[in-house]
Amino acid sequence: MSTEAESAPPVMGGVFAARAQVLGPDDVSRALTRIAHEIVERNKGTAGLVLVGLQTGGVPLAESLSSLLTSIGGQAVPVGRMDISFYRDDLGLRPVAPEEATFIPADLTGRVVILVDDVICTGRTVRAALGALADYGRARAVQLAVMVDRGHRELPIKADYVGKNLPTRRDEHVEVSAGGVAIGELV
């Protein structure tokens, strides 16, 4: 699960070299459980919710949140995945190719959409995702859940649910995977 999409522009791929483990697998699952409860609290239940994971790192997190919300609310919460390659504002500046076609499980008009990503940094991915979402219907509200907030925002965008605030340098890289959250560099 690469978070290259959210890292500083000069970083163009490379192999991730972890320097420190920030969260273990148990910490991540505890954070997801807390976020699930925050979502239920804020939306007074799970009715009308749709989860949309951003390719690629947000997709497994959205799926975990969906099963947590389903067990809390007692009713299935649909989950989709979205690739925002065609909406990026840096097209033509570097190779961009979708990982997998977007799948949105329901008409979003009137629903509350919870965008899920692994890491938020500049906010440009989320901006692109908001543009893409509008093409699938007029959601009643859009909320944002992320596992890690690195700071370094370049756009007025804020996450509603955060697993961990993690101050970083721009040249660092944060990797969220099944093994937890690690911080390091792309080399």
Binding site: S85, F86, R94, P95, V96, A97
Partner: peptide
């Protein structure tokens, strides 16, 4: 058209490599 104008086309073997883009 997207391959020619919008983006590089990372193939299986070369993903992550910087491909020529227009400009």
């Amino acid at each position: 058209l997207f391959w020619l104008l919008g983006s590089g086309l990372p193939t299986g073997e070369s993903s992550g490599q910087v491909l020529a883009v227009d400009g």
